[in-house]
Design a protein around this nucleic acid. Sequence first.
DNA 1: GGGGTTTTAGACTCCAAGACGAAAACCGTG
DNA 2: CACGGTTTTCGTCTTGGAGTCTAAAACCCC
Lengths: 179, 179
Amino acid sequence: MLRVRDGRLEALTGRVRMRRGEALEDALARAVDVSALAHHEQLETRLERDGTLATVYLGLVPSDRELPGAWVEARASRDELVAAAEARLRGKLSYTNAGFALAPAEFTISELREIYVAALGHDVSATNLQRVLVRRGVLERVPGVRAPGRAGGRPAALFRFASSRLEVTDQFAVLAPRR
Amino acid sequence: MLRVRDGRLEALTGRVRMRRGEALEDALARAVDVSALAHHEQLETRLERDGTLATVYLGLVPSDRELPGAWVEARASRDELVAAAEARLRGKLSYTNAGFALAPAEFTISELREIYVAALGHDVSATNLQRVLVRRGVLERVPGVRAPGRAGGRPAALFRFASSRLEVTDQFAVLAPRR
DNA sequence: GGGGTTTTAGACTCCAAGACGAAAACCGTG
DNA sequence: CACGGTTTTCGTCTTGGAGTCTAAAACCCC
């Protein structure tokens, strides 16, 4: 599982042994509270040394949802499965609305920016982030504002993701169809 | 397996039963001549009705390589696995150099365009295709030209893919890092 | 040599997206 | 309540990737 906490991308890994006649999703459900995941998908299946098949899942947890466990900073992890999940996440953040799976239900652009910065591993402009996501229609305003913190500042507008299911953007038009 | 023949995207499907203690790749090798595939990758693993695990691979065959079998037009297929492979291919053609796995070793831009048109399912400008792929560095010129056909026309320059291993382009910079 | 065909190259345009700076809206303090 | 410090927001400017268009180049056949 991956989540963003305090500006850091964190990972939580675990294993389950499948039972005879059990579906993959059932085994997954025994390992983790699937309802706590905003999104999960299969990454790959590989053959372990002992001859068993291991199927790897990637799960994404919203930053405001509790999910106890031994979370470790993803960048510090030496686990290559974590690295693969990280890479997959980076790609998905670019050409899908995958951000919904990491963000809380409502958020300010600054908060969303922090999540993207942590997940992508590089700085991101809040202005551009908002414009890009709003233009694509994956982000929409919700009424009300978030009161500023102790230091003051202008109250921030609240946003949410228009959809909470993974959707691939068609805005990404390299080699676009001819009109 | 997918290939492009005569401007059509064709699919060839098959099944193997795994043997005890056998690696996934070994089972794949028994099903198909892997050396004939320019690229193959795992798509997903699912649980079949009879309780067995089915792992789906996507294989790409260069258009000039022979690989006998009951090839069918992909668009006409009702197989949802073929549809999934098709969708995956469309994505990969946009943000990777996956074209190398469908094209012959050397080709003209027109020939490459036909392959992309068949695989993507929509028209593509030869001018843009060349400019985009050359700028990304995935395409490079090779000396010599292809003599024109019966109808005449200017001799076409020859190109090849710079790499014959799948590489993701970093040119695709939505939410790019700040400079 | 002329008409038809295919490929190539250049110029033009459009627009998504990054960069920048100023204004807006709030805080705390004296 | 004026002032400086902070955070967010909005508008403008600029850049560069990519689609469109047209003309030139290079070939065939008759």
